[in-house]
Write a protein that binds this DNA or RNA. Structure first.
Lengths: 183, 183
DNA sequence: TTGAATGCAAAGGATTTGCAGAGGC
DNA sequence: GCCTCTGCAAATCCTTTGCATTCAA
């Protein structure tokens, strides 16, 4: 597959100028579309309109999202481009399998984020507004290798989520507190 | 409340000699029972047989567990000490609220572990056998405070899970590989 | 043509809820 | 006795599955 010529991802994913991408993309040789095409081809799977539609939506921005949010961004039933909920779930699993997306659990639901072409990072989770803020930290790999060697553990991946209150929510809180004080 | 005299937790929770506790308990002034008693009292809630039963079961060992595993350890319906599933869920939420337990999501289900009287720690998760191994790492608090100050984020807690393959599973794999080689 | 993929409807599993009766305080 | 708590049954939420049909190759 991969009919179009190879190129780096850097220009691509943020054409839309959508919010939510805080980190710089990583240099990779194939677009997600190309990489997924290779994945399908190598497994005798087919490139369908639904898979293309979802690929387009998922890689039009860098936001974290869950299955529901993705469904909400799809055309309604009956409209061209509509994809059923079961197919959304099936396809998300394929994207994860293909290495395009990473999946993790937050408050009982599955959250997805870009993996391919996106740098390793971790998250701050605001328990007030629910926002997820990305950050990078090199020191973590030292911790991982140290712990791994201490326990004879073979590390495949990790997930660090720091919970608390983000800056905007702290400011809101302060405003509220001042108001209360005045009463 | 708190009728019995204060004491440290150190002797208590592991009387049973159950497996699963890898870290040394932390010195605290109240038993979980006392602390939960205070919690109930301060909110006008009642000390019921069900809550006492669950308290006893949950603090008879240090293993991680989910609601199902706790239900399995309860007497069967009709037997004395039986607690219904809804009450188990309601009570686990109360234990979390009281600061006795911590809750986190793993593979789509809620996992609980001791919080009160148990030291801060993180987990290695073996994707082969599903085991959770605890480890402690001081360097993480440096990371947390650094990231917090960089993002103006107020940290309340964190959750780090390192996934991979544990030592026993790696050994099993090696044995299998050797067997395959011989064929 | 042919088998893979989709959509539908329905199932599944974990967790929650409404409510009438039971039981702490 | 009052009001909280419990157990039951049913509902909810997210996700998956079986199957007939559609469609990419």
């Amino acid at each position: 597959m991969s009919s179009s010529p190879p190129e780096t991802l850097e220009a691509k994913p943020n054409d839309s100028g959508e919010p939510g991408s805080s980190l710089a993309p990583v240099r990779v040789s194939l677009t997600p579309q190309q990489r997924f095409g290779d994945y399908l081809q190598s497994r005798g799977m087919r490139s369908t309109q639904q898979r293309q539609m979802l690929l387009k939506l998922v890689f039009s921005g860098h936001e974290h999202f869950d299955a529901d949010q993705l469904v909400d961004r799809l055309p309604a039933k009956g409209q061209p481009g509509y994809v059923s909920r079961p197919t959304v779930y099936r396809t998300l699993a394929e994207f994860v399998d293909a290495g395009l997306l990473r999946k993790f659990e937050l408050e009982g639901r599955s959250v997805y984020e870009h993996d391919y072409g996106y740098p390793q990072h971790d998250h701050l989770h605001c328990t007030e507004c629910g926002s997820l803020i990305e950050f990078q930290c090199d020191a973590l790999s030292d911790i991982k290798s140290k712990v791994a060697s201490e326990h004879g553990f073979q590390v495949r991946s990790h997930r660090l989520i720091i919970s608390g209150v983000c800056q905007p929510c702290r400011k809101k809180r302060r405003r509220v507190r001042r108001k209360v004080d005045r009463i």
